[in-house]
Design a protein around this nucleic acid. Structure first.
Lengths: 335, 335
DNA sequence: CTGTTAGCGCCTTCAG
DNA sequence: CTGAAGGCGCTAACAG
């Protein structure tokens, strides 16, 4: 397996008739170099098709120009979008990303983080995830760390996330405004802050509207389709009465929708349904799903930029983003 | 931002009272070392919490233990699954992956490949994608290269993919067997081999059944929801008559389904619908979608293993996988 | 089996 | 502004 002959900084130093340090200088552009030499070097680089060896650079300089991203599911759900946008934003910089998948498991996440650290990443972006807070805090002491789609109160300044409480509140309020009085809620993985926040928003909205929080209408899910389906099954089997469902995320809403369909319950004619995240698919479900859109693009970009600033030790600020209500056919006025 | 103090091979050499080369030896385990020294080294490694510097290793050894993956959409569609499984399989090895996203664009793909190569990847896995064949062949001359979810005839031995012709054939045949005689087809991006193959399979199945290929029932899509929706809109607007649709992939089927729904056409009562890929979501659409399942797990694992073998220059073989028909409620006998 | 000695390719003082 | 020289941390011959 032949590999393209390696052109090194020496080769171009020779060709440009300068020393390798001069080459290094023009390449890194920190220090000024005589115009003549500069162009000569650039020319040589061009001619020989020189590409720096990142490993050598890193070894010598101490930083890898790589940032590690730990996500929880390369496939599916909202985090994809987020990661995608982080990558897009990073593309504008000289940093490259390495992605690792924690697969929703603490153990695997830790393992993944270790491989990222072994890769000498200059910084770490944790996308969502369920790593215990202490661990996160500990990590943040050794590496520049940004949390995306998750917040840890003591690391608020390094968290890029959407206000889930407000989102849950608004989703629920939307249903209330439509005249619903018995609104079920399928929570997300209940040990995750965002799931809890959405849940709290739901409760607050009910209270503010003078409605009772009916424990029987609350079912715990785990953010995936199947749990949404099961949740509705459970509600129906128990004979609960409700005219609307606020699902902790879109994926569970899909499952919920199917469960309703199988029971012959129509959406939104019989039951209104609202999700959270606005995944691409949500505009194409039958009927299209009303949901709270997370600004994945802005979140991703913000996370990437925060990371860069952190590394450069330049000041920056983050503030919670807001989810936006996207009304589609799955919700309707209660009759 | 303090970084954990770096423990180097020297430190442990000192602590274990051996030379650094001995340390290197026990760590790499190629050569045998006196048991006493071996344990001493291991102990020191443990005590000091030593972690090798991968960059130094790579610089010295010449290989990065990294394999690059070029995919076409971190989010969405079938490739996710594939990438996910490649990563899982790689986890078993000492290789780590770097993912880059070509975003369906040749230019971005090339750019992405360059950054991967700059990262000194030991091998490249191209997942799907639309890079021109010449370019792929050229690349394969400089780096171990595996094509996943795509095949290039001259690189057949390095391609891991599903037999799309057969899959298209079977999907269509399923509809024919159900009694359908006028079967529409929404193609995928028509400059991609898999889309073409599925299309060819469709035509062949019709011919074998003695049915005519009706050009008017064939609409070009581009693998995403919206194009499926548009395709059906177009067919309906043109007043075409059909009782079934074979969609080039699941995503377009989702869009198609919505278009039918909006026109008040029921699936499968009025029109049967079959997709391709069996994305997770397909089991949860309304109604659940019949589709051809690509064995993402096996494909991913096969790709990863092929890559490893290629790098080690060990013999290996690949053969096309087969898609499996998954029958769900979206298809039914034509009445 | 094991220590010594070169580098790997590049950055970064340190003297000019 | 610029060349020389010393590493960065580790692997890989090369002599023992």
């Amino acid at each position: 397996m032949s590999v393209a002959k390696k052109v090194t900084i020496q080769d171009i130093a020779a060709k440009a008739a300068v020393s390798i340090s001069t080459v290094s200088r023009v390449l890194n552009g920190r220090v000024s170099v005589a115009e003549a030499k500069r162009t000569a070097v650039l020319q040589a680089v061009e001619d020989l098709g020189y590409r720096p060896n990142i490993f050598a650079q890193s070894l010598a300089s101490g930083h890898s120009m790589t940032i590690g991203i730990l996500t929880q599911e390369i496939r599916g759900i909202f985090y994809d979008e987020l990661v995608f946008h982080i990558l897009e934003e990073l593309r504008e910089t000289s940093y490259t990303a390495i992605i690792a998948d924690g697969h929703w498991q603490v153990e695997k996440s830790l393992e993944a983080i270790n491989t990222l650290i072994d890769r000498q990443v200059d910084g770490l972006i944790l996308v969502g995830g369920s790593l215990p807070e202490e661990k996160v805090i500990e990590l943040s002491k050794n590496k520049p760390l940004i949390l995306a789609g998750r917040s840890v109160s003591t690391l608020a300044s390094q968290s890029v996330y959407v206000d889930n409480f407000l989102g849950g509140y608004q989703a629920t309020k939307h249903l209330i405004d439509l005249g619903h009085r018995h609104i079920a809620h399928i929570t997300g993985e209940i040990n995750q802050e965002d799931a809890i926040e959405r849940f709290n928003g739901y409760k607050q909205a009910l209270e503010d509207a003078g409605l009772r929080v009916e424990e029987k209408l609350i079912v715990e899910g785990h953010f995936q389709e199947q749990s949404g389906l099961m949740a509705v099954e459970m509600l129906l089997t128990r004979g609960q009465v409700f005219t609307a469902i606020f699902s902790g995320n879109d994926q569970m809403a899909y499952g919920a929708s199917l469960a309703l369909y199988r029971r012959g319950i129509r959406v939104p004619d019989d039951v209104s349904l609202i999700g959270f995240d606005d995944q691409t698919m949500s505009g194409y479900t039958i009927p299209p799903l009303t949901t709270m859109r997370q600004p994945a693009g802005r979140l991703g970009r913000a996370a990437a930029n925060a990371m860069i600033n952190l590394i450069k030790e330049e000041p920056f600020e983050t503030r919670p983003f807001q989810a936006e209500l996207i009304v589609r056919e799955s919700t309707a006025r209660h009759r």
